[in-house]
């Protein structure tokens, strides 16, 4: 791809009280893409993000953001990176605008400039009309959107979003995902962590799946999709009145069928395409009554679930 790698880790390891939470992690995130860090709870996603930001020290290995070492030059990293924590909190007694202005001041953004920027990001997340309402009156979804605004106000080159959609209703999730999808065009690389594959598939260009602190899969969604495809994307289950080795042979000769497994009266067929019509025809031609036919699309879900269960 030849794209610039802006976030990378090298053998990043973290231990808490003897347990290894992140285990020799090697991540690469290219500029202006949305990278999804997938994994079940406790896989080490949050810890990885904290180490990338220099908020937690790794036991060994290194994390680099735009070439700056997160452990040794955390301030330089924090100047470029925005962070949306998993358990996001605001000063409840202050308004949305005041909360954002406080963050702007911490980033040494001048008064006039911050006034403009705060208005701009509140507009971007669709909260301009709520700007002067105290945060204590906000709903969970609104706070989460304010959180995105909070990340954007410093104009980060890279944004680390930890479970940005946790605890939201479907509409809230959609709003957040739409906001995230727009970020790369504005020059912000996004690293987001999630345990929901669906969201990640929707907005991410590439993903890494973490399990027990280890990176088990990394790559662009397209490449991973092809990989899944190569293994046969469809799984068709055919039930017949009686088992027939003859029929099994016929079906396995249909083009596109990769594998046929028979278990009593039921056959599990792995195929590259939706071959239900062809299979049905074969069954009918063999004069054995067809009792059942099911199809399952084999997707990234399965890869993910596989590691999910292991973890």
């Amino acid at each position: 791809m030849g794209k610039k790698i802006v976030v990378e880790t090298k053998d990043l390891t973290k231990r808490y009280d003897g347990t290894t939470v992140v285990d020799r992690l090697n991540l690469h995130v290219a500029e202006n893409e949305v990278f999804g860090l997938l994994g079940p709870n406790g896989a080490g996603k949050t810890t990885t993000i904290l180490m990338l930001l220099g908020l937690t020290e790794p036991a060994s290995g290194a994390a680099r953001v735009f070439g700056f070492d997160s452990t040794k030059e955390p301030l330089k990293v924090k100047r470029l990176a925005g962070y949306l924590p998993e358990r996001l909190g605001f000063y409840e007694n202050l308004t949305a605008r005041e909360n954002l202005k406080f963050i702007a001041r911490l980033n040494n953004i001048g008064e006039v400039e911050s006034q403009r920027l705060v208005g701009e990001v509140l507009e971007a997340v669709g909260m301009a009309d709520m700007a002067d309402t105290a945060v204590s009156k906000f709903s969970r979804g609104m706070k989460q959107r304010l959180g995105i605004a909070d990340v954007l106000v410093k104009k980060p080159r890279v944004a680390f979003l930890d479970e940005p959609t946790a605890g939201l209703d479907p509409e809230g999730i959609n709003q957040i995902l739409d906001l995230i999808a727009k970020l790369p065009k504005k020059g912000t690389t996004v690293v987001l962590s999630s345990h929901r594959l669906y969201e990640v598939q929707r907005v991410c260009h590439s993903i890494g799946i973490l399990s027990k602190g280890k990176l088990v899969v990394e790559g662009s969604l397209a490449a991973l999709g092809r990989k899944a495809l190569a293994e046969g994307r469809y799984r068709i289950e055919v039930g017949t009145a009686k088992a027939s080795p003859q029929l099994r042979k016929v079906i396995s000769k249909i083009s596109g069928v990769r594998k046929v497994e028979a278990k009593g009266n039921v056959m599990h067929i792995t195929a590259d395409a939706d071959l239900r019509a062809e299979i049905a025809k074969a069954v009918i031609d063999s004069d054995i009554p067809l009792t059942k036919m099911d199809i399952q699309e084999f997707s990234l879900d399965e890869i993910y679930m596989k590691y999910f269960h292991e973890g």
Binding site: Y83, G89, E92, L106, K154
Partner: peptide
Amino acid sequence: RARGTLSRVLSQPVF
């Protein structure tokens, strides 16, 4: 810490 504002402040460029 309990309100979750500490991690937000510490992720800004401040010592």
